[in-house]
């Protein structure tokens, strides 16, 4: 098995997902199978091969430091689930 239930649980915490026990079990099996399949990349000795994070060879794409209009408050909060005054409101952030 390529991945343990504990590792799946750890990844779920990192990924900010509250998984049910049923989901956790199913994902452990599925991720195990997928990792077996994708794990073939380990066959290759790639020590001398540079990584590619992007297929396009561009550098120094930037913008001048000139302000452009921000959104109106109506637009900012158009989709907000909870608004208090001109703030977004969320349940208390715990420790």
């Amino acid at each position: 098995m390529a991945i343990t239930r504990e590792e799946v649980l750890h990844a779920a915490r990192l990924a900010w997902l509250a998984l049910t026990d049923e989901e956790l079990g199913r994902l452990t099996d599925e991720l195990g199978a997928i990792l077996d399949a994708v794990g073939v990349v380990a066959e290759l000795d790639l020590a001398d091969v540079p990584p590619t994070s992007h297929p396009l060879d561009l550098v120094n794409v930037w913008d001048e430091d000139e302000p452009r209009p921000s959104l109106s408050l109506d637009e900012v909060f158009a989709n907000a689930p909870d608004r208090s005054g001109d703030h977004f409101r969320v349940p208390p952030v715990g420790e």
Binding site: G85, P92, E95
Partner: peptide, 10 residues
């Protein structure tokens, strides 16, 4: 933080 009723974001 621990005892807040809610949090606001700007």
């Amino acid at each position: 933080i621990g005892g807040a009723d809610y949090s606001l974001i700007d």
